[in-house]
């Protein structure tokens, strides 16, 4: 009897795409993190891998707090956050209107989308030498790398967000007396806002990736540079700290976006 019950229980945990009790879900999440940590501890503390390649968790945590207590490190964080936001902001300021335009008018689509599609496949990192020729190695260069990496992607995704609005919604507004401009301003834009926020959230992730690319190649400050510098001195702990800090910053920004989305658009179906 007991055995049968246990068997049935197993089956319910492995139903395709069905929900499982929250308790089991969190067990899975914590098991994965603990396993990862265990492997790390095993490899580093038992000296299965040389300390130079893989520092112990305790050393990384120590180094993490040491970094956070130094004002210089906050300076590095600050300059990196500044670059990401500038590149991202620039991409949004230009990319969102262009994306909406491309998703609204077929003629604009023909001008904007194929070109963006084409450039999107050119790796942003490959532009770095060119950007250095054009813009030197100052702030503009780093912001430009982030901009190029996120802009074309953003235009395509915003155009798609705009395109996904059901045509009947637009027809309905016409029959309620809306003119073309009102259809754009009072229907298309409000209808796409939640999707736009989700798109911006995704693009923000891309922007961080390109920040590191830009700072690894040509910078003398910032988080990417601090990772690069640490590598030169074989300071693996600091490399770990750099990666973790970037990950945490990304996570914090992502959660902020999710929270704002939920607060601003309580009407959106599906949730975030």
């Amino acid at each position: 009897m007991e055995l049968q019950k246990g068997k049935r229980h197993q089956w319910t945990l492995f139903k395709i795409r069905e929900d499982i009790p929250k308790k089991w879900y969190f067990t899975g999440v914590s098991a994965a993190f603990i396993l990862l940590l265990l492997i790390w501890i095993l490899l580093s503390n038992l000296k299965l891998v040389d300390e130079v390649f893989l520092p112990t968790p305790a050393a990384v945590v120590g180094s993490f707090f040491a970094a956070l207590s130094s004002p210089e490190y906050w300076g590095e964080i600050g300059i990196s956050v500044y670059r990401v936001f500038m590149g991202f902001l620039l991409a949004c300021l230009l990319g969102i209107p262009l994306g909406i335009l491309a998703g609204t008018f077929k003629l604009a689509e023909s001008v904007i989308l194929p070109v963006s599609e084409f450039i999107r496949y050119m790796p942003a990192a490959a532009f770095i030498p060119l950007i250095m020729v054009w813009a030197g190695i100052g702030e503009t260069a780093k912001i430009l790398v982030i901009f190029i990496g996120s802009f074309f992607q953003l235009v395509l995704m915003v155009a798609d967000d705009t395109n996904r609005i059901h045509k009947d919604l637009l027809y309905a507004s016409y029959t309620l007396g809306a003119n073309r401009w009102q259809v754009i301003s009072k229907v298309i834009i409000p209808a796409m806002l939640p999707k736009l926020m989700t798109t911006m959230r995704l693009i923000m992730g891309w922007a961080w990736t390109y920040l590191v690319v830009a700072e690894l190649v040509a910078a003398n400050n910032g988080l990417g540079y601090s990772i690069m510098k640490a590598q030169r001195f074989m300071d693996t702990e600091s490399i770990f700290v750099g990666i973790i800090v970037i990950g945490l910053l990304g996570l914090i920004i992502d959660r902020c976006f999710a929270y704002i989305n939920k607060k601003l658009f309580p009407w959106a179906e599906g949730g975030n």
Binding site: L169, Y171, A172, T175, G177, K186, P190
Partner: peptide, 28 residues
């Protein structure tokens, strides 16, 4: 061309999801 003189109801639900029921009715 389309005009508010000819109202239309569609088979698909065309409520503006960001507006309340009252705001939907007041849209036109």
């Amino acid at each position: 061309g389309p005009s508010a003189k000819r109202g239309m109801v569609f088979q698909s639900y065309t409520l503006f999801p960001w507006l309340t029921v009252r705001e939907n009715i007041e849209f036109g």
